[in-house]
Amino acid sequence: MTKESSDLYPVARLAAAQEATASAGLGALLLTPGPDLRYVTGYEALPLERLTCLALPAEGPAFLVVPRLELPAAEHSPAARLGIEFVPWDETDDPYALVAARLGGAGKVGRVGLADRMWAMQSLRFRDALPGAEQVLAGTVLRELRMRKSEAEVAALREAGAAIDAVHAQVPGFLRAGRTEREVGRDIAEAILAAGHTTVDFVIVGSGHNGASPHHELSDRIIQPGEPVVVDIGGQMPSGYCSDSTRVYSVGEPPKEFTRYYEVLQRAQEAACAAVRPGVSCESVDAAAREVIAAEGYGDYFIHRTGHGIGLETHEEPYIVAGNTEALAPGHAFSVEPGIYLPGEHGARIEDILVCTEEGGERLNHRPRELVIV
């Protein structure tokens, strides 16, 4: 285990999660493979039909129930540093009953927090094993911990930002008239892995009218001369932390209407980034972008929130959206990505990841935000 990994997944996090569990009035957290388990233990467990589950009682020692065939992987993961007991189970065992018994039986756990990404099959099995226990989301307990990124987490996000910036630097070489979105997307996916990511989470290449669909991804549409192309890409790094960045390119000179609203979009994204500082509400950052776009007559074409949190998941809290009055705090990491989309014509989005600091906001993406004409 490297020092970097120890800093990223510190031993003290288990105690912090246990304290949060007790403060929330829960008897235990049950964390199956996914971002909640990895956040608390550093263990990137395989999501299998065989149960792997960290049981974290509000009082008493935590334990990790794991299929015996997965025990070696668990023992070589960062979870081995935590001093928790590994409880292997065999193919003929009932691991849900095993968890319930070790927690003290059905009557001992009044409320239990289930990992937000736990499969329904597993949550129903736990309902049967712990009858009468109220099931709530573990995210309600872990959200404050996960939202406030540590210095090590911010460093991991900086690394992810630099890696995806390196991919965007190559995109102009992939784009030309006559190629399909899918062909360009294949090149980008290869570049994401070559830049140090372990997985490609998404590749959006929206050319022409497809750029007006924010989550278009890829098609066999042939890119035409003079068309804008929205490229939104991201992946996961070996650290577990994610990248996400959007830039817009044009294959030759774009339509005049597009050039006009792209300039509006640049000002809107800059206004939202400038609004980031401790104590301001998430919705006020959204409003800073939205007001610029609405003032120029494009308000109806900005059809999504301004941003989302990012960390071990590409989309997590806090969300930068109207109605979210939560105040930003140092360590909050999120996207700022206003967009303008003209149905049937074209669209544009500019996206950077920011971290709220004591002084304001630090951008983690540094590629030019001007329209790139190739």
Rank of each mutant, 00 (worst) to 15 (best):
A152T: 12
C242H: 09
P255R: 12
S239D: 08
G208S: 13
S207L: 07
R221W: 05
A166P: 04
R158K: 11
A156R: 02
P255F: 08
D187I: 06
I223F: 07
V229N: 04
C282E: 10
V203H: 07
T246G: 00
D220A: 04
A195N: 03
A169G: 06
R158Y: 06
E263K: 14
F258M: 13
E183M: 07
T198V: 15
P238H: 10
A156L: 09
P278N: 14
R176D: 04
G234A: 01
E283F: 09
G211C: 07
A163P: 07
I192V: 13
E227Y: 02
I192W: 03
L218K: 08
G161A: 10
V167P: 01
K256W: 10
I204T: 02
H197M: 12
E217Q: 11
G178V: 06
R158W: 15
F202M: 09
H168I: 04
S219N: 11
I192E: 06
V171A: 02
V285Y: 00
R179S: 08
V203Q: 02
T180S: 14
Q224N: 12
V167L: 03
R158E: 15
D201Y: 06
R267E: 15
V248A: 04
G208I: 07
D220H: 08
F258S: 05
A155L: 09
E183Q: 14
E183L: 06
T180E: 05
V167C: 03
L157H: 10
T180M: 04
A169T: 06
H197R: 05
Y261H: 15
E153Y: 09
G226V: 10
T259G: 08
A272K: 02
I204Q: 03
V154I: 14
Q170K: 13
F202K: 04
E270V: 13
